[in-house]
Design a protein around this nucleic acid. Structure first.
Length: 801
RNA sequence: GGGGAUGUGGUGGAACUGGUAGACACGCUUGGCUUAGAACCAAGUGCCGAAAGGUGUGGGGGUUCGACUCCCUCCAUCCCUACCA
C-alpha cells in the first residue's frame, strides 16, 4: 500500500502493524552486543496520558531508538505503579472495585502508549497491584527483616474521626478531613520502619560516583544532611539531665534558654499533671504538619518551671517547650542562642528572653562564624578552633561529646489503606511472624459489586485468622512498590524467583528518565533498596541508576498544567489531529529535556509542516545508487560538508548532550541548505548524489524522533522492506569537515566593526593587515593609537585603542 | 524556614570551552498562487532611529581587551520538604 498524501493516521498504523508482526522491540540477552537498559519512570494509571507522560516517554524512546541504531542491545520496558490513593478514592466514590478501575485505566493508557509508537518490550510489562509482582515484594520485606532492617515503632498519623481513616497530608485541608470535613486528630499507632539510616553514610558517599545532574546530587546530599556537631548535657536542678544537639558549640556562652520539643518525653511527662502544658502540647500537635507549614507557623513557646544549670557559667536557664523544635532531628532539645540563630532570636524577642552576643559581628542575629567574645578561656579564638577546644573540654569533663548527625530519618512504610500491597506479617498473640515464600502472596480481599473497599482493619474475614492469630492490616507505602520495579523488569517472566541472573546482565539501568519532582524521595528509596537487595544477595552492584535525566514540567501559559487551574491539554486530541510523529517531534523540538516546556496549540503546526515538507521532498523520489562521481563543484561540496557536519552534530547531540531541540534545528538547516536546482529532474548525477546523501542521512537522523514517517519513506525511497534501517546509524567522514576559509570578526575595543572571509592558511600578520584595510574598521581606527591586538585563531581579532 | 532550579525578541528557544547575541521554529507584515479561503511558495521581522549610528540577555555593581556565560548583591517565578505519585 502506498500513500499519495502525507496521512499520518494511515501511515503510522501500517508501520505499527509491521513492528508488531516482527516483534521488533523484544529484548533478549546478547553475547555480542553491548547492552543498554533505558528506563522511563512508570506512570500511575490515572486513566489518560498527560503531556508530562508524552514528553517523558518520548525522550526515553528517542534515546532507546538511537542506541538501537548504533548497535546496542536495548531493553526498554514499561509498567504500572498501580497501587495508590486515586484508585481507592474512585472506588469509594463510585462503589467500584479499585482493581477493575485500575485495570481499565491500564488498558486505555497502554493503547495510548502504543499509538505513540514507543518501542517498549511489552512482554515484560509489570503491574505493582498484580500478586505476581507484590508477592516478591513481600518476600523481599521478610528477607530485609531477617537482615535486621525492619522494626516497629509508634508514630503519629492524621486521623479522621468521622470517616475513621488515616489521612494523607494532601487529604487534610485547613486542619479538616477533605471528605468528612471533621477536625483532624493526631493518633499514635504502631508502624513498620525500614532502617534506611543504616545506609546513610553509603547513600551519601556513593552519590559521587553517579552520572547524575549536579542539582539532584546536591538535593540528595542535603536531604541526608550529615553534619558534625556536639551533644551537650544540661543538668536539670532535679538531678535529671537534658542533652542538646548543636552544630555551633562555639556559641555555648550565648545560651540564654533551653527549648525542648512538645514531643520530648520530659514535655510529655510534665503534661500529665499540668493542664496548661497539656493544653499547649495539644495545640502544637493539632495536626501533623508538613515541614514547610511548620516552618511558616508562628513560633509558640511555653515556659516550664524546670531550670537547668549552664555547664560553663553556672547560671540557671529556663526550659521552654517550643513548637519549632523537632523531635525527629538531633535530640529534640535545642540550646537557645538568640544572638547567633535566626529562629532562637525570633523566639527570644517574642518572649523577652535575654540575648547575649558571643561572636563578633555588626548586627544581631548573626549566624556567621567569627571571633569569640565574652567566652572565658575561649575568648579570642576563631569559631572552628573554639569548636574543637570546647568539644575536647566536653569530653574531658564527661558533659558531652562531638558527634555526627544525620537529617535523614528511617522510612515509615506502613499505610492504613486498602489499595496497597499487604504487609506480610501475622501476629500470634501480638508477636509478629514474618511470612515466608510458601505463605505468599498475601492477597487483598475481593470487593463485591456495588461495594466500596473498607480499610483492612475493619474486615474481620481478612485479619482474623482464629486461635489468637491476626493479620497485619497495614499496606506498604507505594514508594516501596516503585523502589525495585527497575530490577523486576529483568526477570518479569520468572514465576519462581523475584530476580534471577538476567539482572546481572541488564543492571544497572544505563539511563533513567523522569520528572525532577522525584529527585529526592523515589530516587533515594530506590538507591537504598538496591543496596539492601545487594546485601541480601538479590542483585549485584552498588547503585540502580547509572545515569539520570530529569525532565522539566509541561506548562501552559507559564503554569504547570493542572486540573485545578483548568489549563490541561489532552494529548490525545493532537495525536488524532496530527499523528504520533508530529507530537513527538514537537515535544523534542520545543525545549531541551531538563527545562520546562511551554505547550502551544499553534506552534505544533510548525512540526507538522516540517514533516509535510519532508514528505514532499522524498515521497516521489528514488534512491540514487551510483558510485560517487569523481568531481564535485564547490556548491556540491558545500552541501556534502553540511551533510557530514550535521550528522556529526546530531550524533553528538543525541548521544552526549541529550540536546534534541538543537539536533532537530540542525536537520532543518540542512534541508534549507539544499540548492533548488539539485531537486530538479534534470539535475546532474553529482547533484543527485549529494541530494541522495542528504535524504539518507535525514531519514536516519530523524528516525529516533519520528520513527513512522522515517521508516515508511525509507522503504519507499529504497524500494525495500527497510529490514536493517532501525539498526543503521550512519558514519560521518572527517575529510568533509575540513574548511578552507573562515569568517573573521574584526573588533575595536570589543565591538564588532567588520567581518572578512579569510583563508585558514593566513598568519596573524596578514590577518592584521587585511583587518585594518576593512573600510569600516579603517574609519574607526583613523588617527587612533593601537595599544594592543588580540587574535583568537580562526575566530576574531580585537584592536584595543 | 530549609534545599534545588530558572529568568535572552511579540512567543518557544540557540549561542557546547569567556570570543559575531537572537540559530531553528511559532507568530506577524508584504508579495505570489486562488473566485475567496485553507494549504503552499518567496521576502522581511530585537528595540530606538530617515540614516549614520546607538542600544540590548530580570535589576544593580564588579572582574576582563571582550561577559547570556565568571564573582557579589537584589528581585521574580517554579520544584521538593518525608502519607500525592
Amino acid at each position: 500500500m502506498s500513500l499519495e498524501e502525507y496521512n499520518p493516521q494511515k501511515l503510522e498504523n501500517l508501520i505499527q502493524e509491521s513492528w508488531k508482526q516482527m516483534d521488533s522491540y523484544k529484548a533478549d540477552l546478547s553475547e555480542t552486543k553491548e547492552k543498554f537498559y533505558c528506563l522511563s519512570m512508570f506512570p500511575y494509571p490515572s486513566g489518560k496520558l498527560h503531556m508530562g507522560h508524552v514528553r517523558n516517554y518520548t525522550i526515553g524512546d528517542v534515546i532507546s531508538r538511537f542506541k538501537r541504531m548504533q548497535g546496542f542491545n536495548v531493553l526498554q520496558p514499561m509498567g504500572w505503579d498501580a497501587f495508590g490513593l486515586p484508585a481507592e478514592n474512585a472506588a469509594i466514590q463510585n462503589k467500584v472495585d479499585p482493581k477493575s478501575w485500575t485495570e481499565q485505566n491500564i488498558q486505555s493508557m497502554r493503547s495510548q502508549l502504543e499509538r505513540l509508537g514507543f518501542s517498549y518490550d511489552w512482554s515484560r510489562e509489570v503491574k505493582t497491584c498484580d500478586p505476581n509482582y507484590f508477592k516478591w515484594e513481600q518476600e523481599i520485606f521478610t528477607k530485609l527483616q531477617k537482615k535486621g532492617l525492619v522494626y516497629r515503632k509508634k508514630s503519629l498519623v492524621n486521623w479522621d474521626p468521622v470517616d475513621e481513616t488515616v489521612l494523607a497530608n494532601e487529604q487534610v485541608i485547613d486542619g479538616k478531613g477533605w471528605r468528612s470535613g471533621a477536625t483532624v486528630e493526631l493518633k499514635e499507632i504502631d508502624q513498620w520502619f525500614l532502617r534506611i539510616t543504616d545506609y546513610a553514610d553509603e547513600l551519601l558517599s556513593s552519590i559521587e560516583n553517579l552520572d547524575w545532574p549536579e542539582n539532584v546530587k546536591s538535593m540528595q546530599k542535603n536531604w541526608i544532611g550529615k553534619s558534625f556537631g556536639s551533644e551537650i548535657k544540661f543538668a536539670l536542678l532535679n538531678s535529671d539531665e537534658l542533652t542538646a544537639f548543636t552544630t555551633r558549640i562555639d556559641t555555648i556562652y550565648g545560651v540564654t534558654f533551653i527549648a525542648i520539643s512538645p514531643n520530648h518525653p520530659i514535655a510529655q511527662n510534665l503534661a500529665k499533671d499540668n493542664a496548661e502544658i497539656n493544653e499547649f502540647i495539644k495545640e502544637c500537635n493539632a495536626i501533623k504538619m508538613a515541614e514547610a507549614d511548620l516552618a511558616k507557623a508562628d513560633k509558640l513557646g511555653l515556659k516550664t518551671n524546670l531550670k537547668v544549670r549552664h555547664p560553663f557559667s553556672d547560671n540557671n536557664l529556663d526550659v521552654w517547650i517550643a513548637n519549632y523544635v523537632l523531635m525527629d532531628y538531633g535530640t529534640g532539645v535545642v540550646m537557645g542562642v538568640p544572638a547567633h540563630d535566626e529562629r532562637d532570636y525570633e523566639f527570644a524577642k517574642k518572649y523577652n528572653i535575654e540575648i547575649k552576643q558571643v561572636i563578633e559581628s555588626d548586627e544581631l542575629p548573626s549566624p556567621k562564624k567569627g571571633k569569640l567574645i565574652d567566652s572565658d578561656n575561649f575568648t579570642g579564638q576563631e569559631s572552628d578552633e573554639a569548636i574543637k577546644n570546647i568539644n575536647d573540654y566536653l569530653e574531658k569533663n564527661a558533659i558531652g561529646k562531638s558527634i555526627e548527625n544525620f537529617r535523614l530519618r528511617d522510612w515509615g512504610v506502613s499505610r492504613q489503606r486498602f489499595w496497597g500491597c499487604p504487609i506480610p506479617v501475622v501476629f500470634d498473640k501480638g508477636k509478629p511472624i514474618f511470612l515466608e515464600k510458601k505463605d505468599l502472596p498475601v492477597e487483598l480481599p475481593k470487593i463485591k459489586d456495588g461495594e466500596s473497599p473498607k480499610p483492612l482493619s475493619q474486615n474481620k474475614d481478612f485479619f482474623d485468622l482464629g486461635s489468637g492469630k491476626t493479620r497485619e492490616v497495614d499496606t506498604f507505602d507505594t514508594f516501596v512498590d516503585s523502589s525495585w520495579y527497575y530490577a523486576r523488569f529483568t526477570a518479569a517472566d520468572n514465576d519462581e524467583k523475584a530476580l534471577d541472573d538476567d539482572s546481572k546482565y541488564w543492571l544497572p539501568v544505563d539511563l533513567y528518565i523522569g520528572g525532577i519532582e522525584h529527585a529526592i524521595l523515589h530516587l533515594l528509596y530506590s538507591r537504598f533498596f538496591h543496596k539492601a537487595m545487594r546485601d541480601i544477595g538479590l542483585v549485584e552492584g552498588d547503585e540502580p541508576f547509572k545515569k539520570l535525566l530529569t525532565q522539566g514540567m509541561v506548562l501552559k501559559d507559564g503554569f504547570k498544567m493542572s486540573k485545578s487551574k483548568g489549563n490541561t491539554v489532552d494529548p490525545q486530541k493532537f495525536i488524532d489531529k496530527y499523528g504520533a510523529d508530529t507530537i513527538r517531534l514537537y515535544m523534542m523540538f520545543t525545549s531541551p529535556p531538563e527545562q520546562s516546556l511551554e505547550w502551544s496549540d499553534t506552534a505544533i503546526e510548525g512540526s507538522y509542516r516540517f514533516l509535510k515538507r519532508i514528505w514532499t521532498l522524498i515521497s516521489d523520489r528514488k534512491i540514487f545508487l551510483e558510485e560517487p562521481p569523481k568531481d564535485f563543484s564547490k556548491l556540491e561540496l558545500k552541501l556534502r560538508q553540511k551533510s557530514h557536519q550535521t550528522l556529526k552534530k546530531v550524533t553528538n547531540d543525541y548521544g552526549e548532550r541529550n540536546s534534541f531541540n538543537t539536533a532537530i534545528a540542525s536537520i532543518m538547516e540542512l534541508l534549507n541548505a539544499i540548492p533548488d536546482s539539485f531537486k530538479l529532474n534534470d539535475a546532474t548525477s553529482a547533484e543527485a548524489f549529494c541530494l541522495d546523501e542528504v535524504i539518507q542521512f535525514t531519514l536516519k537522523m530523524l528516525s529516533p524522533i519520528t520513527p513512522h514517517i522515517s521508516l515508511y519513506l525509507w522503504k519507499k525511497y529504497t524500494d525495500s522492506d527497510g529490514h536493517n534501517f532501525e539498526h543503521s546509524w550512519p558514519k560521518y567522514i572527517e575529510d568533509f569537515l575540513k574548511v578552507e576559509d573562515f569568517q573573521l570578526i574584526i573588533q575595536v575595543n570589543g565591538k564588532v566593526r567588520g567581518k572578512e572571509i579569510i583563508s585558514v592558511d593566513a598568519d596573524q600578520t596578514v590577518i592584521e593587515k587585511l583587518s585594518k584595510e576593512n573600510e569600516n574598521v579603517k574609519k574607526v581606527l583613523a588617527n587612533q593609537h593601537i595599544k594592543k591586538v588580540i587574535y583568537v585563531k580562526e575566530k576574531l581579532i580585537n584592536f584595543v585603542i
